[in-house]
Design a protein around this nucleic acid. Structure first.
Lengths: 323, 323
DNA sequence: ACCGGTCACGTGACCGGTCACGGAGAGTGT
DNA sequence: ACACTCTCCGTGACCGGTCACGTGACCGGT
């Protein structure tokens, strides 16, 4: 039992034929006698033979698998993207290997290195700069999700929230609010979303405050507490994503703010659970299913040898309960 | 550009060495001159050479990848399990290929067939009976999640919610409730959870009603509407999972029931978002991280040749807002 | 009895790498 | 100048399959 792998030749000698015949039997090739085929199949079953996927894939180079790299599968936005990508990949008969980097830059690079020799292409929400990624992945097609500057050598799905965020700010201002803050992500460089926010404020003659927050409910709770501490009269809040917004709404209410009356909140992403919390979250919605599908589509074009392109997906303001 | 794949031998002739030397250079083997190595690496880079993962894996049979089959990645319970499994697999250096069967039995079998020749083991929340699964997977190790009867030839993580559901019913009864319904899943066979529910009711001298519901928020909404229609004086509700419960709470409130005053609701799974909805969902909590970790662990033991076992993970009642 | 045509099966090459050898050339000691 | 090591690199086999051929048995037709 501890023994070696049972190969096609073991089956062959057990059935008293050549290994080529075994291959024929297993692959439903026509040029084989029915009884022989039966005998071979029996032998294979008896020995518990399983063809090596590597050997098989080596010769007929068909199986493609793409690596999906995301920072946090527990963030519903990424879950939705992953789900959509999975579905799109299934339609093409591709396999999707999922990697969760836990938002950790080091793990991201480690993942890219491992993955680079294990998949045919990579789709991911990557933080590392393009040249670093290129070095780690060794030249396989890469499609970025949600980055502004993708670099010329990669495919990219750009998330354009400019119009959505401008609309969001305009809505808040129209509601008479003028002390509007933002909880951004925590990375060194401020996000494009925060720039859009500042732009929008400026166009209304306002200024605001941007504070970094962890990308989790708890991060939103901590962030909003800090923001309210510094600016107790905050009457509007935008967030980097919905998860942060949900945390922010919770904590704001615990701190005695009525949402949306005292302080309106608008998230970003448009995840499903946003509509389940109380009050339902207003947000700039991204079509995650389309996003996932587009990413897979780009992989397909890159794999076919096309030059990388940038597809843009646009967020739209969805007003529910919190604003 | 449209040409063939660039192999190790192309690199070899380009660098003016034998292909063995190329292999040495790429794998950081010691027996190679530094300058030669550099030259080879340059040539490889120039040609855009990428080693074939299949050829490599074929000879040193180390890379293991497990297939994770789940019915619906958008259901947060499965997301949490997947996340935990991903993390556990990463620790072992395994790759995880994720498949979403969309709760469809046909797709499940199709997936198993494809996957069977693409991964070394399967972990999954499978519906098909054991013998069918065995036929489709062709004998590779399989670990079931959340099934009562696993069959002797598979590993299995059993979800034991008996104590939790009994506690849930006891709590409802202690609160003076005696018209307690349940929204089960929709499959042909009633779930173990519904049996536990009926058992628990019986032990209190009560009887109840079980209704199948789709495993989604919407399913819960529809289900509770039907249940309230048939039994307007329903004062307690258990559900197959939290997602259904969330839908049930929403619709129940829309139908004028106060939760928990008029009708208490207790879900199952203990997903994170349960604590974010309003009111926070009471539930029978399963430790999803442990579940995922245990599944991977079982795969490891099966891969090592051990005989399949059954591990049990026990749910505990968590009382929050809805009961 | 001879011949061409199927049918069933075996032989050899190949997919793209890795590994165990063996051998050439340079460097040492005497 | 000799043998002897050591370093560096090439040759051959192999991993476990698939595919393009080649070959022998069997068939009916003349």
């Amino acid at each position: 039992m501890a023994g070696k792998r049972v190969t096609i030749r073991d089956v062959a000698i057990s059935a008293g034929v050549s290994y080529q015949t075994v291959s024929r039997a297993l692959n439903d090739k026509p040029e084989i006698d029915a009884t022989t085929k039966e005998r071979v199949l029996d032998a294979a079953r008896e020995l518990g033979f399983r063809p090596s996927r590597f050997a098989r894939a080596l010769v007929r180079q068909d199986t493609t698998s793409v690596g999906l790299v995301i920072p946090d599968l527990l963030n519903p936005f990424f879950t939705e993207v992953a789900s959509a990508a999975l579905e799109a990949a299934r339609k093409r008969g591709w396999h999707v290997v999922v990697y969760d980097t836990a938002g950790d830059g080091e793990q991201e690079l480690g993942t890219l290195e491992v993955i680079g020799s294990q998949v045919d292409a990579i789709v991911g929400y990557l933080n590392a700069p393009a040249d670093v990624v290129a070095r780690y992945t060794g030249g396989i097609p890469v499609v970025y999700i949600g980055r502004e500057s993708a670099g010329a050598s990669f495919g990219s799905i750009r998330v354009d929230g400019e119009a959505g965020i401008h609309a969001a700010v305009a809505h808040l201002v129209a509601g008479g609010r003028c002390r509007i803050g933002m909880l951004d992500h925590e990375h060194a460089a401020p996000s494009a979303r925060s720039r859009w926010y500042l732009d929008a404020l400026r166009s209304h003659g306002l200024s605001g405050w941007v504070l970094g927050a962890g990308q989790s409910v708890e991060g939103g709770e901590i962030g909003v507490a800090a923001l309210l501490d510094a600016h107790p009269d905050l009457d509007g809040l935008l967030t980097y994503n919905d998860v942060i917004a949900i945390g922010a709404v919770r904590r704001a209410r615990m701190l005695g703010r009525r949402v949306p009356q005292d302080c309106a909140v608008i998230g970003f992403d448009g995840v499903q659970i946003g509509s389940l919390v109380e009050p339902p979250l207003s947000t700039v919605r991204i079509d995650t299913r389309q996003l996932g599908a587009l990413a897979v589509e780009q992989v397909a074009t890159l794999l076919a040898g096309a030059t990388p392109e940038v597809t843009t997906i646009t967020g739209t303001l969805v007003l529910r309960g919190t604003a």
